[in-house]
Structures are given as C-alpha cells and as structure tokens.
Write a protein that binds this DNA or RNA. Structure first.
Lengths: 204, 204, 204, 204
DNA sequence: CGTTAATCGAGACGGTACGTCCTGTCTTCGG
DNA sequence: CCGAAGACAGGACGTACCGTCTCGATTAACG
C-alpha cells in the first residue's frame, strides 16, 4: 500500500477511457433508433460501430441487457412545461406528451426494450427508478391537486398514476384511435379518470 | 376437364402432417411455459422437443415470431362466470381474472411474447383479433350497462375498455401493490373508472 | 402358379416406364457433361432435370454411384479406324485417340467418375468390363503383331497394354506437355515402349 | 514510424494457434486413414474430432478439398534406400516401393484424394509440386544413368518418368496381377521400358 | 370389363451437414 | 493495466439433400 491511501480500491494501470464507454452507449442507442430489434442487437455490431474491441464492452457490462438498460437510462425526455392553472390541464399536457413520445426515436427505443425489462428483476428495479423520475412530475401535479382540494383527499396516488398513464400508453402504442390527436385522447382519458378523483368541493 | 371442376386448388404431393404441426405448437408452448425467454427460444430446441426435423418447422412458419404467435393463439383462457347482478360486480370479476391470469403459465407466455408483437404489424393484427375475443366479454358487460342505464349513454366503449384493462395489466404485471389481492385491486380500479361512466339514473 | 410358367418372376401392376429410365440417364450425363462434380451431383437435381419424382430414381438405382456407373456405361466412344499397316502405326492412332478423348465431354465424364470407381469393387468390375471392350481393340493389334512377328512371342499382353495406355492417360490428363500434340506424344510413347517388345525378325 | 520498419505485414490481434491447425490436419488424416471417403468426409466430423470449432477450420481453409490437400502434403513417404549399383536395380527398387505404398494407410489416403485434385487447377499445381519431390529421386537416377552412358543421351526424362511410374501405379492400384509380387512387377516394367532407353554402349 | 397392384409426379418426413454469425473468453501487441 | 484486434470453442441460424414415406392419379395384365 504505497499509494493514495484512500479506503477505496486502488486502480493500478491505465484507467478506463470514458470516451470508449460513451461511444458504446451511443452506438447502442443509434442501432436501437435505427430499428434494430433487441434480439437482433449484437454486441459485435455495437463494438464495431463504436470503434471498440468486444472486450472493452464486456469489461463494462456483463451482457446485452445490462448495457441496453444503461443506454436507455441516458435518454432524457424533455419534460413539457406545465401551465399550472388546473390539475386537469396539467394532466392533459403530460399525457399528451407521453402519447407523442411514442413516435420519437427515444420512444421507440424504450418500447423496444420494455419487454426485456420485465424479465430481469434487477433491471426492472433500475428501470422503475428511471421511470419514477418521470412519474414524479405527475405525482407533483397530484399533490398540488390534493392541496387545492381539486382531488379527493383519500386518493391513492400510485393507483391514480396507473389509471392515467397506462391507458394512454396502451392506446397510443397500439394506435387504437389513429385519427384522434394525442391531445384529444389525453383529454378524454383525464376526464374519465378524474371523475372518480374529484374532491367534494365543487359538488354543489 | 371432365371432372369436379371445383374452383379450389387441388394440393398435389404428400399433404402436411397435422400431427407434426401440433407437436411443434405443443413443444413451443411447453418451452415457453418452462420459462424460456423468447430470445432464448430456439427453433432447433423446438424441433428436437417435437421430434421433428427443422425443415418441417420452416415449411410451416417463416420464423420464430410467426410460430410463437400461432402458438399463443392456441391458448384458450377460461372465461370466468359472471354474476350478472351489476356492471360493477361483473367488471371486478373480469379484471380480477385478468390480474390472476398473469400468474398462470398461459399468462406468463403471453407476457413473454407481447413485446415482439408490437413490432410486426401483421402479427399485431392477428394478436388484436385474438385479444378481441376476450375483450368482447367486457364489451358485452358494457352493453348491458348501457341498456340498463347504469352507464352514461355517450360512453366511448373502446376507450372505457382501455381505461379498465390496461391499468389492471400494468399494475398486476409490474407487481406495484404486491400485498393487495387482485380482487381488491380490481375493485379500486373499477370504482375509480366507473365514476366517470355512470349514467344519470342514480342521481336523485 | 397358373401363369406363363417361365421361371422368371411375373410382374403384376403397372410396368416401369423405360422413358423415365432414359430421361434419368440422360439427365445424369447432361449434368456430368456440364461440369458438375460427382460430389456435387444430386439425385434431386437429376430427378428434377429428368422431370421425374425422386422415388422413380430410387426404385431403379440404390444410390448415386450405381446410377452414375449405369450412365457412363451408356457412353459409346467411337473407335478410330485403324490403318492396319503396322503395329506401330495402329498403336499411335489408338493412343492419340485416347489422349484426345480427354477433351471430349465423354472423356471429362469418365474422368470425373474414375475415382469413385476404385472404391466400390462391384462397380469396379463393371467398369473393368466396359473398359475391356475398348482395350480389346488394342489387344487385337497386339495379336496381329505377334502373328506377324513384329512383336516378341513372350510378350505379356496385359502388361504391355498398361505400359502404353496408362502413360498416355496420365500424361494427357495431367497436361504434362501442353504444347505437344497428342499424335506426337503417342508416337514417342509407342516408340519407347515398342523397343522392349520387338520381335527377333528385324534383327539382322 | 520509429520501429523495425520491415516491409512485411505486422499481424494484429491474437495469432492463430498452430496447435489447432495441427489437430485439424491430424483429424483429417485419421479419418481418411480409417477409410472415410472424401465425399463422406465432413468438416463437422473433422472439427469435432480435432476438438475445435467449425469456424476455426473455415478460418484456415475455404473448403474440404483445400484442407485435404494440405493434409496429404504432410504425409512423408519414406524414400527407400537405393543400392546404386545400376540404373535398372535402382528403378526396380523405387517402383516396387511405389507399388507397395498403395497398401499403406498413406497410399490409400492419396488414392482417395487423387480424383478431386484433377479438378481444381490450383490444387493440382500444389499436388504436382508435392509429387515432384518424390519424382526427383527417380530423376536423379536417370541423371546418373545418362552420365554413365547406361541411358541414351537423347532421353526425354519427363516422358520416361511417366513411362515407368504410371504403369506401376495403375497396375498396382487396379490389382491387375494380384498374384505377382511388386518386385516382380517392377522388374518387368523396368525391363520393358528400359529397352527403349538404353545407351549405345552395350551394343557390341 | 372391372379389379388389382405396382407405377407415376409431387412433395412432406426425420435427419445430417453445410457455411455464416454471434457469444463470452482468451491472447497478442502497442500505448 | 487498458485498448483494438481478432482467434478460440460452442452453438443456432436457415438452406439443401438424403433416402423414405404418403398422396391421388395412371396403366397394364388378370380374371
């Protein structure tokens, strides 16, 4: 122990190049965005596209799934600006944004990856954490609604979340109403769902 | 042309053995039920398990996905008996059934296959048709509710369907509330959703 | 035994079509002449080329080799006209003919088939019989030479045959002297070989 | 460019294992020696016998033929010791050795492979080079015979070679004289052939 | 003249091998 | 020690033939 002395492991030798890691992540996302299926996605193709040896990939990630998860975690969806005038308006804005995201490259990537996630519990947790950051925005809207009395105080926030986002996702990704705009769909879903969530205030 | 003259094609050569087809489908479902991932599922393993040459598989299906789709189309989920006393009770029964199905071998198979379906539009259509037969039961409940006035006449049935089934599926498959029984979950979802669907009748 | 009474089997049912047999043989020779290797030669290709089902081939020949042997047995090489003026002249004519045959389609077919023959003793015998008919011509020349005293009486005819034909074949098929005509080659081989075969007559 | 600067290419990546190459060659020769036909010889069997992946074979040789050629090039036939007392005695010894070699495993291997060689000109050249080294011994005997006057000065050495070796090979491999020993056959062939090659010396 | 039985073409059958590709590991060299 | 390059054993891919086996439709000769 002649070195730095910090409690952590002392990495000797050449340190890993973060450039390589970035190139690998980018290559993965590129391929995914080009429509390559998860199943058709290949470590060899990723390494070659990243200009990197296969071992450099395997040194960082144990397998394709882990790499893909890390890759999609790097996708940052732009959070839409919320008007903040009412719970309904905010939810419609958020849901419409979710629906539209299905058509962006990022949305397609996430969709492609989704099924693999369900299988691996560890990855599932990491994915949940990632998704949670996006849900947090909706949760915040709910909290404001509860405070303002727009929403009933005994609302189960997590369940309400599912009641809103999962119909939107399934309707949008299945293209069940191809002629209806995302905004209109979001409105109808929010209206239907909110009916059971409204607070007692505006009853009379 | 002195003969039957039927317009149909007369198949020449030895006809395909339906026994082989059945064995292949069974082998596929077996492997899937044993927890083999779609990605890990192998035509070679299927053929070997079915006691069949690889060519016999490829003669019928062009690839794994097509085969898997045909295989799951053979899964017949038992439709639960509906009490029929009220829309709410029926929907709770149906949703609870859907939730529980996630834990059956059939449910796991369908979940494993779902993601691949979204990719291929042709298969997607075939899957939709299959799912539709199960949705039809819910639709029937809706129709009865509309007739009895339990549901508002301007209800969008398809959207309402999505509002019920997709939250149930996502909540159940993600195990978001691991301690709550499927029945209780179903009740809460139905109650939340129905609030926006009730007819004017019980207003007084 | 109510029938014809001949010792032979009485074939009932539809007799085999000799047309089919001929088509199969022709197809085989065609493919061989087009340069298809024995190894690359396929029963399926033969049957398809002959417009015949595979079973029709297998009903007649147990395997590719047997079929090929029967096919080449149908090749009739044109025997060159012999001047008959002297043993030397006749042998040169015959050998030159043998050398030239290497460049004909038939020659190429035989060459292609030769190696397989060495392996199967039964086929080897059939091939020997076929070849023998061509050797018989040379044997006849030898006999005339022995009678006329041109050749030494203690000549081993079979060995002498090998001494003439095998150098010619190997030299020609290996193209060892690409610039020398077959006639010139034949002359030189015959002259070299005849030296040890001459009779005592022209000694003085 | 501060380094060695040799014009040769510097191989990058892990070098090919010569152990694997050797194992592949050995496996090939083993199978051939066990009587497996060239046609029945299988890359898969070779790889498995060599304890090697198929790709490792295909990385080195493009096909079975190329591999087999390389394999037989590794067969070293023991050159018989030559008495050196006379051209005749030496040739008889050599030819008898050639004849006997047909019964050794190596001889059978070469015979099995011969036909394939004739087809591919490139392989043909490589085979010729290999055979040439064995012919060189005979050529040396001829040269000594020319020097000593035992052979006529205008002898065409290459043709003389063919006049001796090809009859021996064909007679031996076809087993035309099954009861005659190789030595006796060799004597008779050499005597017949030498008659046309003798020098003027012993004329008186 | 209708039965009978082997034939025909077509093509499916369980297998085996093909030659390619990818996996995850390993060696090499240069930095 | 990292990095690219690429070889390694293993195994699945989808294709092509093997030799056998149904199919329905002909074809003779027998009865």
């Amino acid at each position: 122990m002649t070195t730095t002395g910090a409690g952590a492991a002392r990495p000797v030798g050449r340190p890993r190049s973060s450039q390589a890691s970035d190139a690998i992540i980018s290559a993965t996302l590129d391929l995914l965005a080009e429509g390559v299926t998860i199943e058709a996605l290949t470590i060899e193709a990723i390494a070659s596209r990243a200009g990197v040896g296969k071992a450099t990939v395997y040194r960082r990630w144990p397998n394709k799934e882990a790499l893909v998860i890390d890759a999609i975690a790097c996708l940052k969806g732009a959070t839409p600006l919320l008007p903040g005038r009412s719970v309904r308006e905010d939810l419609v804005t958020l849901l419409a944004g979710m629906g539209k995201a299905n058509d962006t490259p990022e949305g397609r990537i996430v969709l492609a990856v989704l099924p693999e996630i369900r299988r691996n519990p560890e990855l599932s947790a990491r994915y949940a954490a990632m998704v949670d950051s996006r849900r947090e925005v909706i949760r915040e809207v709910f909290r404001r609604g509860l405070a303002s009395g727009e929403l009933t105080p005994d609302l189960d926030v997590e369940l309400a979340l599912a009641m809103l986002s999962s119909p939107m996702m399934s309707v949008a990704s299945m293209r069940m109403f191809p002629r209806v705009s995302e905004e209109r769909l979001a409105e109808r879903i929010v209206d239907l769902a909110l009916a059971g969530m409204r607070g007692p205030a505006p009853c009379e």
